[in-house]
Design a protein around this nucleic acid. Structure first.
Lengths: 230, 230
DNA sequence: CGCATTTTGAGAGCACTGCTCTTGACGTGT
DNA sequence: ACACGTCAAGAGCAGTGCTCTCAAAATGCG
């Protein structure tokens, strides 16, 4: 019993050590992490890593899941600190938490929101961690709608063809949000990650210098589109 | 004279051939293009490529510039076909041209709007090609504002601190657009590329199936925020 | 305890990569 | 006719992901 659990614990620690080294190398050198370099840093031989991860892709998947979870945790923490009835505050807290985490961990952000790595295909188990931020946003919408402070329909009318689909999305995410409101929520979602990605991937270079102010403005603007009350 | 120009022409053709092979391989296999594979496809040896491109990065830069230009051309063509006073039509034509080009050339799109490649740093000469779509959007705003059909201020008020910066952006791009309108134009710009990137990078998998309808809705919605008249 | 089984790390090796350098051939200008 | 500049080829270096084999260590069981 103890013996088995000891071995299991050592194995878990080793796995975590490999991921930590990979993250370090990711933060330092950039995106294309090398198994051999990780092994070197850990003082072992490259083939030994294959005892813990079947392939480079599997390591990458583990890092991706971790990154989604780290981002999700950061966002949830920040959002939870705001008074429940301050809908705009909850949205802005989420936005800034996402941006702050992305700026602090640019390469991990690129891993999850950048272009997919060549041969790589995301497995199913990345879906729940990936949907933590969307779930958070949906929660704000749900609370606002339940309190009668967010209109179901507003702005651009949602085409009929999209209604069933967005109803399904709301159901999957477990939030009772009408489809047209859900669609505006996705507008906000796109705007949030579009803004962060553009800033991080250099598209704002030589264009906008005061990124923080620009980001805050954009997130307030989209909050207005969603209908979040001040 | 003729001799020199002949040699120059042959050289230009060879350069173009290498880029074409690189694009082919990019479209087929994915992002991490290999110089040796390109050379193999062209029936030459890898070292010969270095007569035309000093490094892999230089080839990459050439491909990036080409991609920006191809996207810019596609967008400009589509936008030019719409009547000048149909501002919404011009915006939507631009959006759909960008999306269509991205869907037809996903790997080239990833090259320019995805996460930047590890060691790579974009040189100055990518800036003009990269700003062709923004220039196009600004042109729509300029025409609308000049005709009195687009309000300078609308929606979320632009903070004073951002005004000088956005005035500079409008100046650089050579379009007489007031800063607050320019800021809304950037909202649209973010939304456009955010939507295309999310679709292409798989963030909409298992979420939205009717991507075309969703995209059209989002672009109409942001057009409303900008203030484009129907 | 002692033996069998499983787990682990090391090392060699394969096919591949970007890149450099040297060598030899070819076309051109004086 | 000779010299020069351009070009492609080949060998080679250091690096990569990954597979395989082998020995050592840790573990489970009678």
């Amino acid at each position: 019993m103890t013996a088995a659990s000891i071995r299991a614990r050592v194995r878990a620690e080793m796995t975590e050590g490999i991921k930590a080294a990979a993250r370090r190398q990711l933060a330092a050198d950039g995106a294309d992490l090398s198994l051999r370099a990780i092994a070197r840093e850990l003082g072992m031989v490259s083939s030994a890593i294959y005892r813990y991860f079947a392939s480079r892709d599997e390591l990458l998947t583990a890092l991706i899941v971790d990154a989604y979870n780290a981002l999700g945790t950061a966002a949830e923490r920040a959002e939870a600190e705001v008074a429940r009835d301050d809908l705009l505050g909850r949205w802005l807290a989420t936005c800034h938490a996402v941006r702050d985490w992305a700026l602090a961990n640019p390469h991990e952000y690129a891993l999850i929101y950048g272009s997919p790595v060549p041969g790589y295909r995301a497995p199913e188990d990345t879906i729940p961690p990936a949907s933590r931020v969307p779930v958070l946003i949906s929660g704000i919408l749900r609370d606002g709608y339940a309190a009668g402070r967010l209109p179901a329909e507003s702005g651009e009318p949602l085409p009929e063809s999209l209604r069933p689909e967005l109803t399904t999305v709301a159901e999957q995410i477990g939030a009772e949000v009408p489809p047209a409101l859900m669609a505006r929520g996705m507008t906000a979602w796109l705007q949030l990650f579009g803004a962060v990605s553009f800033e991080l991937f250099g598209q704002l270079n030589n264009v906008i210098e005061d990124r923080a102010a620009f980001f805050a403005y954009q997130m307030r603007a989209v909050a207005r589109v969603v209908g979040l009350p001040d």
